[in-house]
């Protein structure tokens, strides 16, 4: 592929999704766009770029953008954090007074796959649980820097491609309805959720306290001081017995002393214990 072609295609993706494609991801264009090239009868990505320069190519540009950006968000991404979620939610349910909501923040929600994955687990736990589970109120709060993806998350409608990434077909059948070839999350899942555009570098205190915070694969885009600032700001919004979920390749160690790892759980942290004695003395 011509380097100018990569720049051009990456520019379209950035303009439409806010997502940044780096040169080391150029392999992804070959694998992801191969079916599109075949369907459009195009011999190469250079030929695709040529076609996209036509003013009538808006649909094609959108389709390409979706093929290249859905990679960043799929259902039950990395698996393990969601297994831990199934463990920690019953503990939180037991620890919280009836009537208090359990609040979960998907702090970089992108198009919503993480938030809907959490909602699927909540609905399964509520279905299997006793009356106290059914009476418990849960709130999932999704935020992202980019307005277009927050709008999509709120809409809760996913393409055929998106619902095949990470989501087992039985959970798709149970939780989504097909409308004109796309898949819309059931109202039951949507009832848990609120979405809002937000910048993690701004004041987060207005969002209130959360029992669980997911902030996965975001810190990698920040420099070290910004990582510390965001981690400390998120920790300030976290319940003392809550948990912060980072990406599998991300760490809080050496960046802030306000978090400590939860044993055996890669990328999952709780507020450091030192906070408690300080409060006890006060």
């Amino acid at each position: 592929m011509n380097p100018a072609t990569f720049q051009f295609l990456a520019g379209i993706v950035k303009e439409r999704s806010g997502g940044v494609l780096t040169a080391d991801q150029s392999y992804m264009l070959d694998t992801r766009l191969a079916p599109l090239l075949k369907r459009e009868n195009l011999p190469s990505l250079d030929a695709l770029a040529m076609k996209l320069r036509s003013p009538a190519a808006g649909m094609l540009a959108q389709e390409m953008t979706e093929l290249l950006t859905t990679n960043e968000s799929h259902f039950f991404r990395d698996g393990k954090p969601f297994e831990y979620l199934r463990t920690i939610l019953p503990e939180l349910h037991k620890a919280r007074a009836a009537g208090l909501p359990i609040r979960i923040w998907s702090a970089a929600c992108s198009t919503g796959q993480e938030a809907y994955s959490i909602a699927i687990i909540l609905s399964e736990l509520q279905d299997a649980g006793d009356a106290t589970w059914k009476a418990r109120r849960f709130e999932i709060f999704g935020t992202d820097l980019t307005k277009v993806v927050v709008d999509r998350a709120r809409e809760g409608v996913f393409t055929q491609f998106e619902v095949q990434r990470g989501l087992p077909v039985r959970q798709l059948m149970k939780n989504f309805q097909q409308i004109e070839g796309r898949w819309r999350a059931h109202d039951r899942l949507r009832a848990y959720m609120k979405f809002q555009q937000a910048n993690l570098l701004h004041d987060l205190r207005g969002f209130g306290k959360f029992d669980l915070i997911f902030c996965r694969n975001v810190l990698i885009y920040f420099d070290l001081p910004t990582k510390a600032r965001v981690l400390n700001a998120l920790t300030a919004q976290l319940a003392p017995d809550g948990a912060l979920f980072l990406g599998a390749a991300e760490t809080a160690m050496g960046i802030t002393d306000r978090l400590e790892p939860i044993g055996g759980q890669r990328g999952i942290y709780r507020p450091a214990a030192q906070a408690a004695p300080v409060r006890a003395r006060a």
Partner: peptide, 13 residues
């Protein structure tokens, strides 16, 4: 269940 068209990522997933 895989809905065509599929790619390597979907199939292996």
């Amino acid at each position: 269940y895989v809905m065509k068209p599929f790619d390597e990522a979907i199939l292996m997933d």
